[in-house]
Simulated assay, not measured.
Amino acid sequence: MDLAAVEKAFRDNFVERGELGASLSIWQGGEEVLNLADGWCEREHQKEWTAATMVPFYSATKALASATLLMLLEENGLGPEDLVCRVWAEFPNKNATFGELLSHQCGLAALDQKVSVFEYEAVIAAIEAQEPNWDLGDGHGYHPRTFGFIVEEPVRLLSGKRLGEVFRERIAEPLGLELWIGLPESEFGRVATLYPGKTDKSDLESGFYKAFNQQGTLVRQAFSSPRGLQGVHEMNTPKAWQSGLPAMGGVGTAQGLAQFYQAAIGVLPFFSDEVLEWMKTPLVTGDDRILMTQTRFSCGFQLDPLDGAGKKVRHNYGSGMHAFGHPGAGGSHAFGDPDSGISYAYIMNQMDLSVLPGAKSSAIIEALSES
């Protein structure tokens, strides 16, 4: 592994790609082999960014939430093949399995009812009343916001606790991870300020952003239901940090994310063999109804899609054929590769306009894959 090339790619982000503050953590074989942190926590350059700096990492949270549910399913004698309604009787898609729920196949990406992301019971009631956006078995589509609620409700029914509590007690604390889904007040002073991505004309001309910016499209509805925390400025508030939203509310360090993936790929002995298999085994692939590009999902994690010859069409998760992880809106990204034993995490506060990994993380992954 050419760590010098990886470090150069990290430094280039500040020189060439407008990075403000960022952390990079790479692990292999149960040990951290690279930890880089540089820049500033805010544009006014008042507080230096360090390896201890934390930031909201949006949808990278979905991986942590999925692992939490998978652990509870196994402990209760259940798995991806079991019907969701065995645990959640009012789940609207009576034939859907937990595997289909976790791989974005249930057609509950957008809600007809206008409810707030902060009103848990109201969102659950809206989900239970929702007519699926598409029929089960008719493809898949990323659930950017509702995913957190449809994963948390089974966790609450199985454990009697909020998902963020279970994650801290059962995963983060035993592994010593500085990751939270619901940040305590004692950690507020470590959180950097997020800044929105700059709009580029080429981005706005893509099919996804055309649909995202058009009123009434399923894409726009999916990214705006439930309502709230729409703007980046709202994510810079204690209310957002404490919200404990499993789809987008995670806060922590790059080191914590990378170390989590050491456990998720089985390098650090923590998850059972069964749960490890569920995390990495692809369940669905093809054109994504929401992201409007090819995606590939296991139980809550993304993998790079493959072409007809079995080759990767993207390398968001490096060169490893079995690598999996999850990005966060704007540029945060983390994954693990069970073949090489490498895990990776990148967090930053100057966001890009992207829902999949952007140029900053991709440049580092390319250097990592080539080294």
Rank of each mutant, 00 (worst) to 15 (best):
A211D: 01
V219F: 00
G197W: 02
G207I: 09
Q214L: 11
Q214V: 09
Y195K: 01
L218S: 10
R190G: 08
Y209G: 02
L194I: 05
G197S: 07
V191D: 01
G197Y: 05
S202R: 10
D203G: 04
S206I: 06
F212W: 06
E205A: 08
Y209I: 11
Y209N: 04
G189F: 07
Q214C: 12
L194R: 01
G216Y: 05
V191N: 03
G189E: 12
T217R: 09
L204N: 13
R190E: 09
L194G: 02
Q215N: 14
S206H: 11
K210I: 14
R190W: 00
A211M: 02
T193Y: 03
G197M: 02
D200P: 11
G216P: 02
Y195V: 08
G216H: 05
A211Y: 02
N213A: 11
V219T: 04
Y209A: 07
K210C: 08
P196M: 06
Q214D: 10
V191Y: 00
S202C: 14
Y195S: 01
Q215D: 12
A192D: 00
F208D: 05
A211C: 06
A211G: 07
A192T: 01
L218D: 14
G197K: 02
R190M: 08
K210P: 03
K198T: 15
Q214N: 12
K210N: 06
R220Q: 12
A211T: 04
A192S: 04
G207A: 12
V219L: 05
G189I: 04
R190S: 09
G189C: 07
Q214P: 06
Q215A: 15
E205I: 09
R220T: 11
V191E: 01
T193F: 00
T193V: 10
G216I: 06
A192M: 06
E205L: 13
A192C: 01
G216C: 11
G189P: 03
G207V: 10
D203E: 15
F188N: 11
K198C: 13
S206P: 10
K201I: 15
Q214S: 13
V191I: 08
G197P: 06
T193S: 07
E205W: 12
R220C: 04
D200A: 14
S206R: 04
A192Y: 04
Q215M: 11
F208A: 00
N213D: 12
K198F: 01
K201R: 15
D203H: 05
L218T: 03
V191M: 01
D203K: 03
T217H: 03
Q215R: 13
S202P: 11
A192W: 03
D203L: 10
G207E: 15
K210G: 11
D203A: 10
T217W: 06
Y195I: 02
S206T: 15
T193A: 08
F208T: 01
D200G: 13
K201Q: 14
T199Q: 11
Y195C: 07
L218A: 07
L204R: 04
S206D: 15
G189M: 02
T199R: 09
Y195N: 06
S202V: 13
A192E: 00
L194A: 06
A211S: 07
F188K: 13
S206N: 13
